[in-house]
Structure formats: structure tokens, C-alpha cells
Write a protein that binds this DNA or RNA. Sequence first.
DNA 1: ACCTTGACGGTTC
DNA 2: GGAACCGCCAAGG
Length: 121
Amino acid sequence: MTINTVKPHYAQIWKTVQLIPIGKVACYGQIADLAGLPGRARLVGKALGKVPESGWQGKTVPWYRVINSQGKISFQQGSESFERQKQSLQDEQVVIIGARIKLKDFQWQPDLTELLFSLEY
DNA sequence: ACCTTGACGGTTC
DNA sequence: GGAACCGCCAAGG
């Protein structure tokens, strides 16, 4: 995957997702805001669906750390994707009841000053 | 250029 | 909680 073949917005979203720490989760809308695309939560979902398996810019993209604003995994329960995401999160000690994750305990709360550097604004 | 699709979100009931 | 409704708008056909 080269930078030339990728939509700028996708790249920006993937880059932001790479900042979510192990064992934490973020909401689609939250990622959109941090990526400089306020209100574009749906675009984040789309972009995650296109995450290259091989990773992006040398690092993997932890797509499974992104859930919806209600604290739930967005895939339909029981689907293959759902189980894969749930398993990946549990592997990082994230507690999941059904499809629900307690945002209060596991939501990523980024340090803004740190972000300024990471995102190279 | 027009139309449909989305791993969404907030509002409201 | 949860379901229905509507706004959002880039991307892909």
C-alpha cells in the first residue's frame, strides 16, 4: 500500500487510529474529531473497512479499538467480524459484556499536547 | 454529473 | 436500555 493510492481522509483516519493505546477504545465520532473531520463518524467506519491488512506506513492499524458512541461493537452480534473484534479486545484485557464496553473505564482520553506532536499539525 | 452506500451520532419518544 | 428518524458527505459506481 503506497501513499499515492490512498484517499487523504483515509490516511488521516488510519493515522489517528494508530494512536489509540493498547487496552483502550475510541468512538467513531471521537476519531473523526481528532482526525480533523468533525461530524464525519460514518467516514471513519468506511475508512476502517478499507484498512490494509498489511498495515499502514509500517505500523498496524488497530481498527478493532474503535466502537460506537454507545460503547458497543458495531458489527452484528454473532457475525465473524464481531467475534474477531471482541476477541482482539479481550486479548488486550478490555472487558466486554455482550457487545457492550464500559466507556467510563476503557475509553481513550488523549493528552492534547501529545496529539499536537503525533499528528504533526 | 447523479445516485446509493455507510463498522455513525444526536434527538426524541 | 432501545427503536425510529434524520442529518452528515466522501467514495465508488
